[in-house]
């Protein structure tokens, strides 16, 4: 991918990351907060995908894979805890 597009994309995704962090902070309910956390991991995976596409090495995608798995488990545990105060019943 061309350099211009890459720099625009990196800056843009970083801005999105900031917006999601703000959203995480000002969420009105706990459900919205868990959801913003889930979206945060998605945006981070997007950022790592951009980095992997730029330098054509796959180690960034290793991190993305681990992040996807961890984010999934974190969302599940958080919402189960919110639901009935026990993450794994």
């Amino acid at each position: 991918m061309s350099n211009v597009v890459f720099y625009i994309a990196i800056v843009w995704v970083a801005v999105l990351l900031g917006v999601v962090v703000v959203q995480l902070a000002i969420a009105r309910t706990i459900g919205q907060r868990i959801l913003a956390l889930d979206l945060l991991t998605l945006v981070l995976i997007g950022l790592l995908a951009l980095a992997a596409g730029e330098d054509q090495r796959s180690y960034a995608l290793d991190a993305a894979l681990a992040l996807a798995l961890l984010g999934f488990v974190a969302t599940l545990a958080a919402s189960r805890y919110y639901e009935d105060r026990e993450p794994f019943s």
């Binding site: 998605l42 995908a49 951009l50 992997a52 596409g53 796959s58 993305a64 996807a68 798995l69």
Partner: peptide, 25 residues
């Protein structure tokens, strides 16, 4: 779409991982 962009001109390792991440998501 971002993962597809990363794997368009990529090597096998990137394509395999991108596929895995998309399937997982």
């Amino acid at each position: 779409a971002l993962l597809a962009a990363a794997s368009v001109s990529g090597e096998g390792a990137i394509i395999a991982r991108a596929f895995l991440i998309v399937a997982l998501l």
